[in-house]
Computed example of a mutant assay.
Amino acid sequence: MSRKQFGLVGKNISYSFSKKYFTERFQKDNTLDFTYENFDIQDIADFPKIIKNNPNLIGLNVTIPYKETVIPFLNGLSETAEKIGAVNVIKITKEGELIGHNSDNYGFKKALEPLLQPHHKKALILGTGGASKAVAFALEELGISSTFVSRKASERGINYEQINASTFDDYHIIINSTPLGTSPITDVFPAIPFEYFTTKHIAFDLIYNPAETQFLKKAKANGAIIKNGLEMLVNQAEKAWEIWNEF
């Protein structure tokens, strides 16, 4: 019998946390005869080839930049993934159906919750990709309102130029969901006025490599509580494992 297979779909993912995490998990437990592979594709149009060429696949993770564009290739979505509008976990059923799920919201919520204090009522989310949608969903579940920040203002958000001292007075959680600062290009950071961070603020970066991005360093220098994305990743990976093993 062929070994069951899991994997990660993304672009330029040689750094992958997921492959190392699940491979080590499988090695520690001798009862788990599984493999975990990286499926590095330059265009989401290549996604069907992954499914066709790997008949033993039973589960996939999805990362940047395909968390939204993978949806049309799936047979269905969980209620949560449908509400969020982004997928980072795919379960492949015995019948060969591809069902999209989202565990990012769970991972983020569990990582942020211990840091929260009564004054943490509003959050700024830097970036508008698939991960940011899961973050907004988790914040809503926690009773925290959020506003997106992108290069252009929209109905749901503001642009970077609009952030000022009064913004920081109003928003005490600032979340970086952009890839700015990810290894190997670690000297970049979102264009926000870091001087307005205080000890009342939480700066949360979804990036985990490096452990302390420029975004976190600059926020910490002004007294903010900081956290990187490692715990969120571990939480979402464990949730993904749970989803794959639901029958």
Rank of each mutant, 00 (worst) to 15 (best):
M1Y: 04
G7V: 04
G10H: 07
K11P: 00
I13T: 01
S14P: 02
K19Q: 02
K20I: 02
Y21D: 00
Y21R: 06
T23L: 10
E24T: 13
F26C: 02
Q27K: 15
L32S: 00
Y36L: 05
D40N: 11
D40T: 14
I41Y: 03
A45F: 10
A45M: 12
F47L: 06
F47N: 07
F47R: 12
I50P: 06
K52E: 09
N53G: 10
N56S: 12
N56A: 11
L60T: 02
N61T: 12
N61A: 14
I64T: 13
P65T: 05
P65K: 10
E68N: 02
T69S: 05
I71C: 05
A81T: 03
E82Q: 14
K83W: 08
N88W: 01
V89P: 01
I92E: 01
I92Q: 01
E97W: 11
L98M: 07
G100R: 07
G100E: 05
G100N: 04
D104A: 06
N105Q: 13
F108N: 01
E113F: 13
P114C: 08
L115N: 03
H119V: 11
H119N: 10
H120M: 09
H120T: 04
A123N: 04
I125M: 07
L126Q: 04
G127I: 11
A131Q: 09
A131M: 14
S132E: 01
K133E: 09
A138N: 05
E140S: 09
V149P: 08
S150W: 07
R151W: 05
K152S: 13
S154C: 08
E155Q: 15
I158M: 13
N159D: 08
E161D: 14
A165Y: 11
D169Q: 15
H172P: 12
I173P: 11
I173N: 12
I173F: 11
S177M: 07
P179A: 04
T182R: 12
T182F: 10
I185G: 02
T186F: 14
T186N: 07
V188S: 14
F189D: 01
F189H: 12
P193C: 10
F194Y: 13
K200N: 14
H201V: 10
I202Q: 03
F204V: 13
N209I: 09
E212K: 15
T213E: 02
F215T: 03
F215R: 05
A219W: 07
K220D: 10
A221Q: 06
N222Y: 14
G223D: 00
I226F: 04
I226W: 06
K227V: 14
N228K: 09
L233A: 03
V234E: 06
N235R: 15
